[in-house]
């Protein structure tokens, strides 16, 4: 929800990885990951208590929001037609789920954004590694990068539609385009900011360039590259939904837009909720992958 959107607004400063992170890091006390319960029952009990507190802390704001959403229309604080109570939205969502429409729209969106996002990763990571490594290439491409990173992808949507039509190609392309920049810029800055003493060490050991790359530059860059990838995950959904509102016959963006046009307001909100949930899930998934790859990394030998 708010976190997904808040994050997607930020990709303008990829040079400082901390600024493009996902907001505040989880505090140790409130982390959703349960602390490993000790063998002692007292320790286990305390761990369970901590977990419950953590869950409660994390859900209380969400529950409050849903409560306000439910009550505000019922108390006539807002127009019920434009903001139906949450329960009605939930019902509409359930009907969409049962009817199968929800899945067909969601899968259409996921395929498009997944394809665009995946292609962007495959394209931008190697390109970024190259640009970050070779100064002349960076000098050559830098003006271009500056122009594109400062051009809102959605502003180019009409161009994509003109060139590629309103079919899948243009939608996947715009996602690919939008996802490329955060990944590319973060990858470049990752390679550039590898600890210089590590590079000196590698040089003093007379490491060959491929070995230097594989054993030092790449592993050192992974955390920052992943920040870019996570950012791109959010961008993929944002851009796709907007693209689907322009010309599409399926997809969550289409569902939201057409529901609004047909005045099926609960359905519209059902679509919005689904997108929020997907945004959260994608971010969580990417975070998990990132943790696997970085924290307490297994020792790479050979």
């Amino acid at each position: 929800m708010s976190t997904t959107i808040g994050r997607s607004v930020r990709p303008t400063s990829p040079t400082s990885p901390s600024a493009v992170g996902t907001g505040p890091p989880p505090e140790p006390g409130t982390s959703g990951v349960p602390d490993r319960a000790g063998p002692l029952p007292a320790g286990a009990l305390r761990a369970v208590g901590r977990l419950l507190t953590a869950v409660a802390t994390r859900t209380v704001a969400l529950l409050a929001l849903l409560l306000v959403w439910e009550m505000a229309p019922r108390l006539d604080l807002v127009d019920r037609v434009f903001l139906p109570p949450f329960s009605e939205v939930a019902l509409a969502w359930w009907e969409l789920l049962i009817g199968g429409q929800l899945w067909s729209h969601t899968s259409a969106s996921l395929v498009r954004s997944g394809a665009g996002f995946g292609l962007a990763v495959l394209l931008a990571v190697p390109l970024g590694l190259l640009i970050g490594r070779y100064r002349p290439l960076a000098d050559l491409l830098n003006p271009l990068l500056e122009v594109f990173r400062n051009t809102a992808a959605l502003a180019l949507l009409p161009v994509f539609v003109l060139l590629l039509g309103i079919g899948e190609t243009s939608k996947i392309s715009i996602v690919l385009f939008a996802c490329t920049w955060p990944i590319l810029l973060n990858t470049i800055s990752a390679v550039r900011t590898v600890d210089p003493t590590l590079l000196r060490l590698a040089r003093s050991m007379d490491l060959s360039p491929p070995a230097l790359f594989r054993k030092v530059v790449l592993p050192a860059s992974i955390p920052t590259i992943f920040t870019g990838i996570r950012l791109a995950g959010a961008v993929a959904i944002l851009v796709l939904v907007a693209a689907e509102m322009v010309g599409a016959r399926a997809g969550l963006g289409y569902l939201i837009n057409s529901s609004q046009l047909n005045f099926a307001i609960p359905r519209m909100y059902a679509g919005i909720i689904t997108i929020s949930a997907i945004g959260l899930l994608v971010n969580h998934l990417l975070l998990t992958v990132e943790r696997r790859l970085t924290a307490g990394r297994p020792d790479e030998r050979g």
Binding site: D195, T197, L198, R200, L201, K215, V216, P219, A220, T294, R297, D299, E300
Partner: peptide, 9 residues
């Protein structure tokens, strides 16, 4: 500055 690879033991 030690120059240890943080991802290795």
């Amino acid at each position: 500055q030690y120059a240890l690879l943080p991802w290795r033991t």
